[in-house]
Lab assay of single mutants.
Amino acid sequence: KLLSSIEQACDICRLKKLKCSKEKPKCAKCLKNNWECRYSPKTKRSPLTRAHLTEVESRLERLE
């Protein structure tokens, strides 16, 4: 599967780190437990900047 097509777990399953069936409108866990089942939009991760990478590398060197 391509990364862009990976389905996201519902908010509660993601928060509780449960295996989500990803069914809509309610996944199996939410249906069974009568929880409100919501699927928040995916958040875009910002790409690493060179400055951040350099900072992490220098912190790693100090720890070694």
Rank of each mutant, 00 (worst) to 15 (best):
R38Y: 10
E61D: 09
E57R: 00
S21V: 00
Q8E: 05
S4C: 14
I12C: 14
S46W: 09
K29C: 11
P47C: 01
H52W: 08
P41R: 10
C13R: 03
L3V: 14
K24C: 13
R59W: 00
K19E: 06
Y39H: 02
K19R: 12
S40L: 07
W35A: 11
L53M: 12
T49P: 10
K42S: 01
N34A: 10
P41M: 09
P47I: 02
C37L: 00
A51G: 06
Q8I: 15
C30S: 02
I12W: 12
K42C: 06
K1M: 11
N34S: 13
E61W: 09
P41N: 10
R45N: 00
T49L: 05
T54A: 07
K16G: 06
K26N: 03
E61P: 02
C20D: 11
R45F: 07
L53V: 06
R50D: 02
S21P: 04
T43V: 15
L2S: 13
S4W: 12
T43M: 14
E55K: 14
K16I: 08
L15F: 12
R14N: 11
P41A: 10
R45E: 13
P41V: 08
S4L: 10
K19N: 04
K24G: 04
L53H: 08
A9H: 01
P47D: 08
S58Y: 02
K32D: 08
S58T: 15
K26Y: 11
K26M: 10
L48V: 06
E55L: 12
K42I: 08
R45P: 04
R45H: 01
C13D: 09
K29H: 10
R50L: 06
E57Y: 02
P47M: 05
R59Q: 05
A9C: 01
L53S: 02
P47A: 08
E57K: 00
E64D: 05
S40N: 05
K16H: 06
K24W: 11
A28Y: 12
L3A: 13
E23G: 05
L60D: 02
L31R: 08
T43A: 12
K26I: 03
T54D: 09
N34W: 07
W35M: 12
K42W: 03
S21H: 09
K17T: 03
E7W: 13
K1A: 08
L18T: 15
N33Y: 07
D11Y: 06
T43L: 13
I6H: 14
C37S: 09
N33G: 11
V56L: 10
N34P: 02
L18Q: 14
N33M: 14
K42F: 03
T54P: 12
P41G: 00
K29S: 04
E7F: 14
C20V: 01
L53K: 00
L15Q: 15
C13I: 02
S5H: 14
C37T: 02
R38Q: 13
L15W: 01
L60K: 05
L63H: 06
E36Q: 15
S5N: 15
L60T: 04
H52R: 09
C27S: 03
L60N: 14
L18I: 15
S58C: 10
K32I: 04
C10T: 09
E23K: 08
W35R: 13
L31D: 09
C20M: 01
T49E: 00
E57P: 00
N34D: 08
R50A: 02
C13K: 02
W35S: 11
S40D: 02
S46I: 00
L18D: 00
Q8T: 14
S4R: 15
Y39C: 06
K44L: 02
K29N: 09
K1F: 05
K22D: 10
P47W: 07
K1Y: 07
R62W: 00
D11G: 07
E61Q: 14
L53G: 06
K17F: 05
K44C: 01
K26P: 00
E23L: 07
K19P: 03
K24E: 11
S58H: 12
K32R: 09
I12Q: 13
K29P: 01
W35E: 09
E64F: 06
H52G: 05
R62P: 07
E57H: 03
C20L: 03
R59L: 06
E64K: 05
P41Q: 06
D11V: 05
L60V: 07
A28T: 13
E7S: 14
C20K: 06
K17E: 01
L3W: 05
C37E: 08
D11E: 09
L18F: 01
R14S: 01
R62A: 00
L48W: 06
R59S: 08
P41C: 09
L2F: 15
R59H: 10
R38T: 05
C30A: 06
K16Y: 04
P47F: 09
E61V: 08
N34I: 00
E23D: 11
L63K: 13
L31T: 14
R59A: 06
T54R: 09
S46V: 08
K29Y: 02
I6E: 09
R50E: 08
S5I: 14
S21W: 00
V56C: 04
E36P: 08
C30K: 04
P25R: 10
C20Y: 04
R45D: 05
E57I: 00
L63C: 01
K17V: 02
L3Y: 15
S46C: 11
V56F: 09
D11N: 11
E64V: 08
P25D: 12
R62L: 12
L31E: 13
C37G: 11
K26T: 15
R59E: 05
